[in-house]
Design a protein around this nucleic acid. Structure first.
Lengths: 199, 199, 199, 199
DNA sequence: GCGTAAGCGAGACGGTACGTCTGGTCTTCCT
DNA sequence: AGGAAGACCAGACGTACCGTCTCGCTTACGC
């Protein structure tokens, strides 16, 4: 049995995928988007900034959109998880507040907005965006909502998807137009659309 | 006695702008966006399709975004005017229904979505989009809403801008994610958020 | 007393050709070639510099080459006439010296070099250059040479055209390569090729 | 003391220049000049004809003049070498005859004429033309001439450069004006200007 | 002495080519 | 085999001139 010391020591060799290169690409993409805007987010620029060859990017990601999806998924699982364990009306309200803050303040929020934008321009992007992000997330949101409805904590007058659109839509709309959505506005939306029994 | 209405007839010596070329460019841009997507909307392609020299485009439009704004403004004034004369609750509801249909069915709706997208990528685009389209339109929408509130026809629990965002946001959100918003969903939104006294 | 400042105003056109515009174009072309080189000698630049509309140039000259021919013919008739009246060996020698100086020092010499150059690039230019300049001039030079040969003043070992090419060729060649041809070199050429009986 | 001179180890990683593309460009330029004239010799046309991207041309040649210089140098070394080994009077005469034929018949002769022309229009072209072609060639021609003078085979009455100008000038002059220079005219020039002892 | 026709400055028009830039693929060498 | 380097084809970018074409004006000629 050969060397089993699975050391992290040589990040720069071997026949396996280089984790350091992978992270360098993700961070470079994130940073570029944050610092210089989507217009500067070219594969060439990412490679330059990450100190990585273009080919390395094309080998592992079919397009720069997949890079953004990778960072978005990682970041939003961390910063904006959909409440899953015994959600209450309050949990849902806090999730909405968090969503507004995510879009307004978190660099990853810019990634989300950029992907909404790119999805308008390229159907293929739209498809991947739904498959990898919007779809799964909506699934979790539906589960969250179903749970609080079942518990009798809220009583929306719209079906689940329409209700979620009605809650998230305005927050996203304002983010798209450069306007923040403060907590009390979120709260009013929440109360108006979900008619919670207790808050 | 001849016509003495001394109109602003500035003979303005020299050649004049060619209206046919102007329209050809606007239509070519519209058609390309509709048929081949934003990715195919290059100045070169517009010029080719319009049968116009590139220089003619650069002479009159600082960027292709301004071309889109020109077509969007013209088309949405025609297809989706903001009700101004004695609007009622019903007028407002119909406007929202029209907005959903504009985004879903009208080619110009694609232009609006494309501009929302571009605005995320380029701050300069965002600024012009607000200046020329979103701002003036919101002004009219606020006036419309104020009118029906004054008449006691509706009683929103959010301030004007937030209420408009809450109404339009979900419709736009669904359009961005490729979902139509049917009349009854619009109606429920309308009733939930504006609490009309009579409909 | 009214305004008597009778300015040097251009009559601002009538139905006849405007002589001031004609001269302005010729001088602008000359000046541009001299100051900024052939590359800057565009119809657009000539019009700008002459304060004349492009159409005025295209109305009277089929191409900018004809403008150059106009100035070259005028200038070389003035600065470098071919001796016609009773030429002697000495007259011929002085003509050659003058030719070298014309190419080296006179701004119109630059025009001649530019036309030789353009003639290589465009057959149509070559044709007009021969028709309007080289041909008539060679005719005069042949007459000059025939006269001094008849008078027994010189005895070339080449026929007239070849002799003229042998005399003018080296001077032009040196001008094309940026080298002046001093008087004594001209004189040696003259003596070697024409074998004058007296000088 | 160890060897501290930075080693000639040019890792030189990455792709190498594509020789096929290089030759395709040179031949395309040559062919275009020959077939359609200098006016058609645009970078765009060369790229099209060579089946090469414009960027590939701009990567390796600062201007199309350098392309022409590349082809001219290669072609004239092949078709019109300056006699170097023990040149005799006869060798020199044959070189002059070859020069006349090169200008009249060889496609590369057209390149030489085109470069003389371009050099008149652009000082930068003139400089490169002298540096890369005229200068080195004249150096060889001077050596050739010095050799036959030293051997007592010829006795020009002009210094080396002036003598070469006097020999080549007429031939070039006639080529510029579209006239061939037949062998016997070359021979007369040669004999008149170089006074060979034996031929 | 008045209409008309030409010349004028101005500049918009459809085009071609410029030289630069990035996208995405392919190739070569190094580790 | 993975990764860095970078050459390659493709094609859009925004600019400069090309030569043609109105425009609205100003004159001079000829009826």
């Amino acid at each position: 049995m050969p060397d089993t010391r699975s050391q992290p020591r040589r990040p720069r060799s071997g026949s396996r995928r280089d984790e350091a290169a992978r992270l360098a690409v993700l961070h470079a993409a994130d940073d570029l988007l944050d610092e210089r805007g989507f217009g500067a987010l070219t594969v060439e620029a990412i490679a330059r900034r990450a100190g990585v060859a273009k080919q390395t990017i094309y080998r592992w990601w079919p397009s720069k959109v997949e890079i953004l999806l990778d960072t978005l998924i990682a970041d939003s699982e961390k910063s904006l998880p959909v409440p899953a364990e015994r959600p209450t009306a309050e949990t849902v309200r806090d999730y909405l507040r968090g969503y507004a803050r995510f879009l307004a303040d978190d660099p990853a929020g810019k990634v989300l907005l950029a992907l909404f934008a790119e999805a308008q321009h390229h159907p293929a992007t739209a498809e991947r965006f739904h498959e990898r992000y919007l779809g799964p997330r909506r699934e979790q949101e539906r589960a969250m909502l179903a749970h609080v409805i079942d518990a009798g904590a809220v009583a929306p007058s719209l079906d689940a998807d329409a209700a979620l659109d009605a809650l998230l839509g305005p927050i996203l709309y304002r983010a798209l137009t450069g306007t923040n959505t403060p907590d009390d506005t979120v709260d009013t939306l929440f109360e108006t659309l979900l008619r919670p029994r207790t808050t």
